[in-house]
């Protein structure tokens, strides 16, 4: 399967001049895997991931131990202050510019290998002019794998609403269901 057949084309884009404030809004409200930073002609120049935004908000001196000393009542105020400090930082100063990409004609297996080799979540798909066309992620590839394996039907698996699993009886029932499912899989 060619990457072009599998890729997602509904993406979140930003210009190089977009501020942290804008990027935070986009990633917080539109929930993309990553934001693609483009210049004129929608040519990809960088990628901003959720990790990049988290990294820039966190003061460098604050490790997880020290963060625990801030009382819960003060935490939101502290966070807002941290965000205020970086709100005007531009996408071009946050983005990763050293990225790998795929071409539409590349094979899904190549995408899978690249994702595994580099430990990435998703890869952009670009044409010859470096214009962004889409994105291929771990999920698309795994969904494709599951589909070509042709052994599953949707009603085979369930999700669990953990909020509803409160009593010992519910916990036991849930675990029995998982065991049954595992046996069925064998």
């Amino acid at each position: 399967m060619r990457v072009s057949k599998l890729m997602q084309t509904n993406l979140v884009l930003a210009s190089e001049e977009a501020t942290f404030e804008t990027l935070l809004g986009k990633i917080g409200l539109l929930a993309p895997r990553q934001i693609y930073v483009v210049k004129e002609g929608l040519k990809l120049v960088g990628i901003v991931t959720g990790y990049d935004l988290l990294k820039i908000v966190k003061p460098f001196y604050l490790d997880s131990k020290l963060a625990r000393t801030i009382p819960e009542s003060e935490m939101d105020g502290f966070l807002v202050k941290c965000i205020e400090k970086v709100k005007n930082v531009k996408a071009k100063d946050i983005m990763i510019t050293d990225f790998v990409f795929l071409k539409p004609e590349d094979h899904t297996m190549e995408a899978e290998a690249l994702i595994v080799e580099r430990g990435l979540n998703a890869l952009p798909v670009l044409n010859e002019d470096k214009r962004i066309l889409g994105e291929i992620s771990r999920r698309e590839i795994l969904t494709y794998f599951a589909k070509i394996y042709e052994k599953y039907s949707l009603d085979l698996f369930n999700k669990f609403e953990l909020k509803n699993i409160q009593t010992e009886e519910h916990i036991q029932k849930c675990y029995e269901e998982l065991q049954k499912e595992a046996k069925g899989g064998n």
Binding site: K65, R68, T69, I70, P71, S73, E74
Partner: peptide, 13 residues
């Protein structure tokens, strides 16, 4: 008050 509210005990893990 913000300093007074800090919880130093969290640092001794």
């Amino acid at each position: 008050e913000k300093v007074m509210a800090m919880n130093e005990n969290e640092l001794i893990t």
